[in-house]
Design a protein around this nucleic acid. Structure first.
Length: 648
DNA sequence: GCAAGGTC
């Protein structure tokens, strides 16, 4: 029997259908696999990593394990998906030949490698080979299977070292911070190669915003021919002085031009999440996209590719929408001729995210429809004509300027309505023409601090810095929320986040920098090329971390972090305090436990409490009820919002 | 109860 191992069920199915004519689907331990009786072949899909490295069980008790022991420890293999491993072993026992057909990348090589190691335990003499294809098309797959090669052990080792380095750093520093601050159980303080640099970005942006000194500036504005032209000044006097002196203005320059506005590029994971985050958190958007993929409505949502491969029949996909509520858009695209845009990143593994079937609004959940509509509109927009603008620039004496923009032809904007735009109409001017100043205004404005990251912009920044992968960035951000390091969107860091980042900066700064990932990438490359031994890389980490453990002042570290937590707690109380308790004079506080209610700060001495509605998002407003002197509360629900005083 | 990386 010939066993072919794929990375996931979907690819297993595809591979089986491409290679064999008589494919039957069977199930063992609830795991599907595909069999070709005539060829005596079985294709089994794994679920990504089915095993992972961990520390031996005796090191699991955080309190009782000196951190130095983690550095000396060996790694043990832990099974993550029992059913898949069981099925793999049962099938492998009977195999004469095993072919690894996992994704052709570093993690894919590692996944295949670990599967083979498991197989060899039950079937030591099995023949093993490896096929490499970068697209699941019949041509690519068949070609790969006619040229089987061997597993690339160095490539697999390079992924293995990443797993180990990440676990080592993550476990040692996570436990160090958590133990020092005495935050154990679900309240632990996490640290990691990707999450910590990401958190540092957010914290440092907040520091910039806090230290930002805004300056005033003054726009001298004149109205001529019904439009406003302006010039910027640093001082109000200068602006006023100039305005006082002008009664007529001569036109010194006038330009009218046609400007084409590029259409958006095809969706890869990052671009998709950036746009979808206007509606929901990235982890939510990702799981919704995953569902749509499983139901066959969109293509694989984890991709770096921003260029449609030639193998996709774009025209057929557009025509598919002629019988849908997107028909006007499909017609528009077909009428103007399909011309796909392309991004800078071109990879071979998966195409950009695009619709694969027509869905009806009624068959999808609300969130599914939002994501589906976004993907469809984006797809059609990438194929449609550019937008065309008429841009006018006019300049007057004394440096007054105005710019006008009018959308002449919407092109892709007709379809993709997710980015707002403004038009500003300007009449035509003639150079030399002298116009009467109809109105004069001085407007005071402020320079703005840098803006906070949103989940969307953060994902993009992470990608640019090489932090995380298309499949993990949304997870990392979710983790930061879950650990109470960040809140809101735009994202704000908590005091705990400040404490964690500053603590790490003081004794293990590398873990807060993207450079660590960059260096790890270089080391992995060297290992893959056979120029470096994985032991050397691991040793380096061990040496660094043992230095950290020796030097760090755990008392001080614990204090820093507890301070952060304490500050968060105080702010939380302050934010939720709504007034004075009518029974004891204590402070009334909105409590958000399993149920939410208004309680007294003197609890348990004072048992005063008020019920609150449990549904919708509750906001403490700054308005005060005139009758009771307590803050007005607001409930925000999907279909509206309402305000009330809890004492009324 | 640690990370980040696959996939569901």
């Amino acid at each position: 029997m010939w066993l072919i191992i794929a990375e996931k069920d979907k690819s297993a199915k595809r591979i089986a259908r491409i290679l064999f004519k008589d494919v039957r689907t069977l199930k063992k331990n609830d795991v599907p696999y595909y069999i070709s009786p005539s060829n005596g072949a079985i294709v089994l899909g794994l679920k990504g990593h089915i095993v992972e490295y961990d520390f031996p069980e005796e090191l699991n008790d955080w309190r009782r394990t000196p951190l130095e022991l983690l550095l000396k420890s060996k790694f043990v293999v832990k099974v993550r998906d029992k059913n898949v491993v069981k099925t793999l072993l049962e099938l492998a026992k009977k195999a004469k030949r095993v072919t690894v057909a996992t994704d052709y990348d570093r993690e894919g090589e590692f996944i295949g490698f670990t599967a083979v190691k498991l197989v060899e335990k039950v079937n030591p003499n099995v023949k093993v080979d490896r096929v490499k294809f970068s697209a699941l098309t019949p041509t690519d797959v068949k070609k790969a299977f006619s040229n089987p090669t061997n597993l690339d052990l160095n490539l697999a080792k390079s992924a293995e070292v990443r797993h180990k380095v990440d676990l080592l750093w993550g476990a040692v520093l996570t436990r160090l911070l958590s133990l020092s601050a005495n935050r154990l159980g679900k309240d632990f303080i996490s640290v990691g190669r990707v999450q910590s640099p990401t958190l540092r970005l957010i914290v440092e942006r907040e520091e910039k915003i806090r230290s930002f000194k805004s300056k005033y500036f003054y726009n001298a504005i004149v109205k001529v021919k019904g439009i406003h032209a302006k010039r910027k000044f640093e001082s109000e006097e200068e602006a006023k002085r100039l305005l006082e002196s002008v009664e007529f203005l001569r036109v010194t320059k006038f330009q009218k031009s046609l400007v084409e506005e590029k259409k958006p590029i095809p969706f890869n994971t990052t671009e998709f999440l950036k746009e979808a985050s206007k509606f929901m958190k990235p982890d939510k958007a990702m799981s919704v996209a995953e569902n749509l993929y499983m139901e066959g409505y969109v293509s694989y949502p984890r991709t770096d590719n921003t260029v449609y491969p030639k193998t996709i029949d774009l025209k057929r996909l557009v025509e598919m929408f002629l019988n849908s509520e997107f028909r006007e858009f499909a017609k528009f695209v077909l009428k103007h001729g399909i011309e796909p845009s392309r991004g800078k990143k071109e990879t071979k593994d998966h195409p950009p995210i695009h619709p694969t079937a027509v869905a009806n609004r009624e068959n999808l959940s609300r969130d599914e429809w939002i994501v589906y509509e976004l993907i469809v509109k984006r797809f059609l927009a990438t194929l449609s004509p550019k937008a065309r603008w008429e841009v006018k620039r006019v300049e007057f004496e004394h440096g007054f300027k105005a710019i006008g923009k009018v959308l002449l032809f919407p092109g892709w904007r007709f379809i993709y309505d997710y980015s707002k735009f403004e038009e500003n109409r300007l009449p035509d001017f003639k150079v030399g023409e002298v116009l009467k100043v109809e109105e004069k205004i001085v407007k005071r404005e402020k320079t703005k601090p840098p803006s906070r990251f949103t989940t969307g912009t953060l994902i993009k920044v992470m990608e640019n810095l090489g932090l995380g992968t298309k499949s993990t960035r949304h997870e990392i951000i979710r983790k930061l929320y879950e650990r109470r390091y960040i809140y809101g969107n735009p994202i704000r860091p908590t005091n705990l986040a400040f404490a964690v980042v500053n603590a790490l900066k003081s004794f293990a700064e590398v873990i807060t920098l993207p450079d660590m990932t960059a260096k790890l990438e270089r080391d992995m490359m060297a290992i893959a090329e056979g120029k470096m031994d994985e032991k050397v890389v691991l040793k380096e980490s061990v040496v660094f971390l043992s230095r950290v453990l020796k030097d760090v002042d755990r008392e001080k570290l614990g204090e820093m972090i507890r301070d952060g937590i304490e500050k968060d707690r105080e702010e939380e109380i302050e934010k939720n305090a709504i007034g004075v308790c009518p029974e004891c004079g204590g402070t009334l506080i909105v409590k958000r436990a399993r149920k939410r209610f208004v309680g007294c700060s003197n609890y348990p001495r004072c048992k005063f409490s008020l019920p609150l509605p449990q549904k919708g998002r509750l906001v403490v407003t700054s308005k005060v009820c005139e009758k009771h002197g307590v803050k007005i509360l607001k409930i925000v629900e999907r279909d509206g919002k309402w305000e009330f005083c809890p004492l009324c």
